[in-house]
Each structure stands twice: as C-alpha cells, then as structure tokens.
C-alpha cells in the first residue's frame, strides 16, 4: 500500500519534471529577453552575464522611441495588419460559408496550395507589378500582400466552422421564404461568431509577425515593426539593451493576445494547422 503510494508520488514528480523541462526553454528565453531590455549597457556587456538587473532601467525603451521613428512604424504595422485582417474577413467569411455549403472541394484545395506556397514566390511578381503601378513607397502593396496571408487563414477557419453548424436552422429559414443572403446574414453569421473571433485573431497575429513582405516592399517610411527592428540591428550596430527592448515592444502585443485568447488560438491552430508566410 505504502509502496504503491511512493511509486505514484515518484511518477508524479517525474511528470512534473517533464512538464517543467518542456516549458522552461520558453520561460528562460522570454525572461532573458526581458532582463536584457531592463538592464543598463554596462550590465548587458558584463561577463559573466548579469541575470537579475542591478538597477532596473527603462532607458532602453525610451531610447527606442527617441532614436527611431518607432511610433510611425507601429502605426504602419497597425494599419497594415488591421486592413489586411478586415479585408480578409469581408471576403473570407462569405467565401467560407459558400464553400462549406456547396461542398466545393476544389476551391478548398486552392486555399491549401496558398498555404504550401513560399511567400517569396508571390513577392517577385507582385514586386514587379507594384513597381509598374508605381505603388512602391506606400502602404498599399503591404496591405495587398498581407491579404495573401490573412485570406487563406480566414477562409480555412470559416469553412471548418460553417461545416460544423447544424444545417437545419438555415434550411428552416429557407423554407420560411428567406433568401440565401438572409439565411447567411441572420442565421449562420451570428452562430459563427466564435469562428470569426478565431479567424480574426490568427489572421491578425500572422500578419503582424510577417517580415518577408515588408523587408522587400517597405520603403524608409513604410516599414512595419518587424522590418524596423531588423534595420535597428543592421544600421545601429549592437547595442543590446535597446535592441531587446525593441524586440519586446514588437512582440508584446502578440504575446498578450496569446495569453488572453489562448483557448481560441489553440482551437484554431489545432483545427487548421494554419501558419502564414
């Protein structure tokens, strides 16, 4: 009896260690990132490294905003990600409904090809087209290319959700004389609200994180945040504190969103295996 209890305690302890081993790489990494961003330059360049800051300073964060036009890059990021997500929702939610209801397998396969295609392969033709249209240097090319990421995510998540909805409700509406549009607008759409939330969050995050489109298409004034921090590295040379602070500023919105919306994010990612780029 006691032997069994001991064995169970040992196995539980082993399991706790396994979980700790699984999550510690993430915890240690983000703690180190935070530590770098809160330390003075002296502490950051010290060897052996200083783990817990001797003095906590916010100078690095102030530096990021003073030396660079980070506010503008932030606004660029917000405009691009919100527009690309909005456009994707506007087009993708009805499309997901149409594909789910008409069981149009082939169009679903097309979406899948968009998931497989490397981002660079869109960039060469679109880069040339934008040059000919003289759109480079504005945010328009960025918004358009980000739709390449957001639209497949939205369509994919929405197909899954509309397929999961019971067909009886809409059929009842149709029998009562509603048009298909009304059945969509007043029956299916309100029911699919959780799906729309999932699609919005995922599309927004993957648009926010995107780097490859911005690094090619953005000019000096149209950089998004990921492009901007990359340029901080290359042009200002290694000054660790401000760099870590900038990295934290860029990724903080996404991390906070992940913490707040973890259930939706997990549901969406599990069902779709989506990832942009």
């Amino acid at each position: 009896m006691i032997a069994r209890r001991i064995r169970r305690a040992v196995s539980n302890f082993g399991f706790a260690l396994a979980i700790l081993a699984l999550i510690s790489p993430a915890i240690l990494f983000f703690l180190w990132m935070l530590s770098l961003s809160l330390k003075t330059e002296v502490d950051n360049m010290a060897f052996p490294p200083v783990f817990i800051p001797n003095t906590i300073t916010f100078d690095n964060f102030i530096d990021v905003f003073r030396k660079n036009d980070f506010v503008r890059y932030g606004i660029n990021s917000i405009i691009v990600s919100f527009s690309a997500t909005g456009i994707a929702l506007l087009l993708g939610v009805p499309a997901g409904f149409g594909i789910a209801k008409s069981k149009a397998t082939r169009s679903a396969a097309l979406i899948m090809i968009a998931r497989v295609t490397p981002g660079l392969s869109y960039l060469i033709p679109l880069f040339l087209i934008f040059q000919w249209l003289e759109l480079t240097g504005t945010l328009t090319p960025l918004v358009i290319t980000h739709v390449v990421i957001t639209l497949p995510i939205v369509v994919w998540v929405m197909i899954g959700f509309f397929e999961g909805l019971p067909a009886e409700l809409e059929e009842a509406a149709l029998v009562d004389g509603a048009t298909i549009w009304q059945a969509f607008r007043y029956v299916a759409l309100p029911l699919a609200r959780p799906g729309i939330t999932v699609a919005t969050i995922l599309a927004f995050i993957f648009s926010w994180n995107n780097f490859i489109f911005g690094v090619v298409l953005a000019g000096r004034t149209t950089r998004t945040l990921p492009v901007a921090i990359y340029n901080v590295l290359t042009f200002e040379q290694v000054s660790w504190g401000p760099l870590a602070a900038a990295a934290l500023i860029v990724t903080a919105p996404v991390l906070v969103l992940t913490l707040l919306m973890q259930k939706e994010i997990v549901a969406g990612l599990t069902a779709g295996g989506v990832k942009g780029g």
């Binding site: 770098l36 760099l243 860029v250 990724t251 994010i265």
Partner: peptide, 17 residues
C-alpha cells in the same frame, strides 16, 4: 499557453534575441 508562446512570438524579434 507558455509552451506555445515561441510559435506565436514575432519570429524576427525572437531571432534577434
């Protein structure tokens, strides 16, 4: 949630650190 943080974080920011 902590475990999935690395895949949600901005890849460029993470790569710099």
């Amino acid at each position: 949630t902590i475990f999935i943080m690395p895949m949600m974080a901005t890849p460029v920011a993470v790569a710099l650190v």
